[in-house]
Design a protein around this nucleic acid. Structure first.
Lengths: 217, 217
DNA sequence: AAATGTGAAGAGGTTCACAGCG
DNA sequence: CGCTGTGAACCTCTTCACATTT
């Protein structure tokens, strides 16, 4: 009988991205009509240097989801990972800074129907505030607290504002009760411990590439 | 006498992002008129959980750049890091997929003057091809090889196209001689070993946040 | 027979504690 | 004395090899 664990698993943190890879691969496999998959086949499908052993190790930390001599049932594993990653529920997202990047993220996230709901848009520029996007209107950043309160708050804030505005905006979304931040601004945000943040540093990513291109000289 | 190493340092890979953080912090310090900085002060400035010990360890791998009892000379360290990361030279970048995301990246990169030159733009949509952006014209993806050849090629390709087009585009930029790829498309690209790639997975990043928000249940 | 689950070994990166130098 | 540079201990994640189960 399968051991259905997965309650409050405090994962190794570092392999959460990998679990998401598995989730994506399994989704594709399910849509292709595959019912059972081995760790070897799944690793092949994930490509990016994932090994069968690693998959088994990762999954075994979450309980017993495979059948020896057989493989993993796609649907059950998928459901478990979705619950673990929080992808089985809707999340309300506010995008602060509705320039090209903010716009791109809004479009991208609403396009890929993945339970991420754009719930509020903010900017500071006069010609952007008031703009409509789908059924939303871009509000002024100065109204952030009020606008969020009057519509029930959001779970996640995406920051795509100029560097000098970032800490102020961060403080305010935190005060408004946001639980997590996806930060595209290349500054080190000071946040209370309870707020979880991921930083995406585009210039940093490029410089990793240029470092490699520079090569061994 | 300072040991001026830094030739073909094959770094630990994993700490390249951290070296870039140092570079950014040192740039800010230099602009603020600071000449000398200790590992402790630099760590404070970098925030993000960087420790003084880690900074010293990282830097010592690159030679002797500090003075005991004194600290590190900002300008010398900055110059060394810039050279190491390849930030002391210009890089030509092609953006493939000129939707909101491609547009955002072009704007972002050209705005922050960091030696990244947008050298070519590609798309497939009829209403985007032919569009002008600064002194560039968006070319059709089908002309990719020719367009790149006729203007000397590029060093880095940024992929911001639909998932199903990604592998094809990747194959073609590689054939056109690109040395590195910044990939925003959530697919596992198959690339020759000589091409270095970084993947930025926006949905993946968000799911890390939602995992944390789901918390210990 | 086939493929998972896992203790043990290994590798890699971080932290410690202090020696070394200016 | 102050701060860097660094071997050693430590810790965490990965890989191996094989016992285990269907």
């Amino acid at each position: 009988m399968a051991m259905q664990r997965v309650s409050g698993v405090r994962l190794n943190e570092i392999n959460v991205p990998r679990l998401f890879l598995y989730h994506r691969a399994l989704t594709a496999l399910r849509d292709a009509g595959v019912n059972v998959v081995t760790s070897e086949a799944l690793a092949e499908f994930c490509a990016n240097d994932v090994t069968p052993t690693q998959i088994r190790k990762d999954l075994s930390q979450l309980g017993t989801w495979g059948r020896r001599g057989h493989g993993y049932e796609v649907s059950g594993l998928l459901e478990m990972l979705a619950r673990l990653l929080g992808l089985d529920q809707d999340w309300r997202i506010a995008i602060v800074g509705f320039g090209y990047l903010g716009h791109a993220l809004a479009t991208f996230l609403s396009y890929r129907e993945e339970r991420f709901r754009i719930a509020a848009l903010f900017d500071r520029a006069p010609d952007v505030v008031g703009q409509r996007w789908k059924d939303l209107t871009v509000r002024h950043v100065d109204d952030l607290e009020g606008a969020l309160r009057e519509q029930g708050g959001v779970d996640i804030a995406v920051l795509a504002v100029p560097a000098k505005a970032a800490q102020d905006v961060a403080d305010r979304v935190v005060a408004a009760g946001v639980g997590a931040i996806l930060n595209f601004v290349p500054v080190a945000l000071h946040l209370p411990r309870r707020v979880f943040a991921r930083n995406i540093d585009l210039a940093g990513e490029l410089s990793i590439l240029t470092h490699h291109l520079t090569g061994p000289e």
